[in-house]
Computed example of a mutant assay.
Amino acid sequence: MTVEQYLSGRILLAMPGMFDPRFERSVNVMCVHDENGALGIGIGHVRQGVRFHDVLEELDIDPGVSPNREVMNGGPVEPGRGFILHSTDWGGADTIAVEGLCALSASMDVLRAIAEGQGPSQWIMALGYAGWGAGQLEAEMRHHGWYAADGHREVLFQTPPEGRWMATWRAEGIDPALLSNETGRA
C-alpha cells in the first residue's frame, strides 16, 4: 500500500450485515494505519453505566468544571484504557495528530486539563480501541466488512453518538439501506 491508501484520519464504518456482531453499526476514527496494522477509536456506541466523572473519580481527579459526558465504547481491545479524541487546540507531550481530523491523547494530562477548564474545546472520551494486525484490516475490507469514509469533523464533534453511523453515510452521499449485505465476484 502507498501512504495515500492508508486510512489514518478517516472514519471507518461497519457495512450493513457486518460479519462481527461486536462491530455492528460501528463508527471508528482511524488514528493510526500503516504497514504494521491499524488502531481506531469507536465513537458510535456509548459505554453503558460509565460517564466522564466516573472515570475521573476512579483516577482521583477532581471533575472541576468538566461536563459529565457519556463515555464511548472505543473497542474490544483494552476496554479499561482511556483515550480522548479532541480538537487540535490542545496538545500534550503524548498527543498524536490524526491526519487533519483531530488529535488523540491518552495521558492523565488531558483529563486534568479538561477538569480544570484548560483542555481542548471539543473532545470525546472512549474506553478501549479497535486494533488490526498487519494486513488484517485490508483483508476485512475486501470481504465486505468496512467502508472508509472521509474524516467528517462535524460527525465527530457535533453529532450525538447514536446518530454518527447514519450521519457519516449521509455526509458521504450514501443511503446504507441501498447497500447489499453480501458480496460476490464478477
Rank of each mutant, 00 (worst) to 15 (best):
V50E: 02
V110L: 04
S121M: 09
G37I: 12
A139I: 06
M72K: 08
R69M: 04
T88F: 00
V50G: 01
G75W: 14
A103T: 02
A93K: 12
T183S: 07
A177V: 07
S180Q: 13
G42C: 09
N36R: 14
E116K: 12
C102W: 05
S121I: 06
G42T: 08
E138A: 09
I124P: 10
V46W: 09
N68Q: 05
G82T: 03
A103D: 09
V155F: 03
P160A: 13
G42Q: 08
T95P: 14
A149V: 08
A106L: 00
W169C: 10
E78W: 05
H143P: 00
R25I: 01
F83D: 12
G163F: 03
T183N: 00
G82V: 02
P67W: 05
E58N: 12
Y6E: 10
L156Y: 06
Q118N: 14
R81A: 06
A38N: 05
D150W: 06
I114Q: 08
I61N: 03
I124S: 07
S8C: 07
T168D: 03
A139R: 11
M30I: 15
V27I: 01
G64Y: 06
R25W: 02
G173W: 12
E35L: 10
P161K: 00
D62N: 15
R69A: 07
V98Y: 02
A139M: 09
R47F: 11
G9A: 08
A139W: 06
E57N: 14
D54N: 15
E24Y: 07
R47M: 15
R25C: 01
M125G: 11
A115S: 15
S26L: 09
T88S: 11
M125N: 11
V71A: 04
G17W: 11
V50F: 03
N68A: 04
V65Y: 05
W146V: 03
Q136E: 15
R47N: 10
